[in-house]
Design a protein around this nucleic acid. Sequence first.
DNA 1: GTCTATATGTTGATAGAC
DNA 2: GTCTATCAACATATAGAC
Lengths: 185, 185
Amino acid sequence: MGRVSDKRERLVESATKLFHQAGLKDTSIADIAEDSGVPLGNVYYYFKTKEDLVAAVIEQRTEAIKNEARKWDENPDPRQRLLNLLDLQVSKKDEIAQYGCPIGSMCQELDKERPPVASEADGLMEWVLKWITRQFKEMGQKQADQFGLQLTAALQGCGVVANALKDPKIVEREIARLKTWIKEM
Amino acid sequence: MGRVSDKRERLVESATKLFHQAGLKDTSIADIAEDSGVPLGNVYYYFKTKEDLVAAVIEQRTEAIKNEARKWDENPDPRQRLLNLLDLQVSKKDEIAQYGCPIGSMCQELDKERPPVASEADGLMEWVLKWITRQFKEMGQKQADQFGLQLTAALQGCGVVANALKDPKIVEREIARLKTWIKEM
DNA sequence: GTCTATATGTTGATAGAC
DNA sequence: GTCTATCAACATATAGAC
């Protein structure tokens, strides 16, 4: 057995980028093949269908966010964990203003599709909601469930509004407010 | 000149419904023709391209929300106007949990497209943000801009989360909180 | 204005040589 | 495992009879 090809990896990477930028429907397999430098016909050796490729993209995004969370979870202060999440989001403000929140837009676009692909993306949103809620619980907040929903919705919402108005400052302003809110708890 | 045909109207109505339920890309002209009972070829007498039909749908949605707002604006109490908006949103909780917020999802889907269609939908979101902000201003709130963004984002955000988790109760809970917040101002 | 038939283009997916 | 050529399906849009 020789060197392992990185083509599969490159395909997922290109698909992740293009799906977010142009949307699922407007990104053809040919687009992904070209962007990743893999010949069209060869794509189907790694992914039997486009749906399989979409599933791989969701899996990759899921792993990425869970890895971030694992890092944050090493911090003993749940308040600081939330602030880390908010800081990450602010750092992506330009991307969010241009193309929307990667998780939110993917859930929305996939919800118009059939299961099981949709539920995988939705599962990621649910995981985020639960992770955020857990931090409030560990802070001893009795209204942890409400605050968890409130913060998750605020994050998604400022993404939608910032994307519609094409203004990264909207993400900045709203998340600055959220950080103050959490610090003052 | 005889009776005016209502075909154009029926086409826009079907398109509005199907675009929201299935998404723009997954709704073909043939689908809209079938749903409205208009023969395929005849669609093009009323709308030269699919993009024209999309533009008509956005226009229709814009008129609908502006008409609602005109009614609410007759009320002298800006606080009550906001509560009316929130009540309307709660009444649509099932639709939102199933298909997402009509305005938010349309903005997001169109943003992946090219102008000028996208900017029309985005303009609607901006109009909503400004209308909400104006109510806070008329309430004498010095932080009206911040509250306007906060409420708009919260509304959009609970739509995204409710849609991902397919749970209308999420809309209910989050908007109940927002109503309390506004009443206590 | 209305409708059928069809042109035209693009996409997801496959066949089969290497 | 890799790649070219191509198929089959479907979408938008048009032609042209009525």
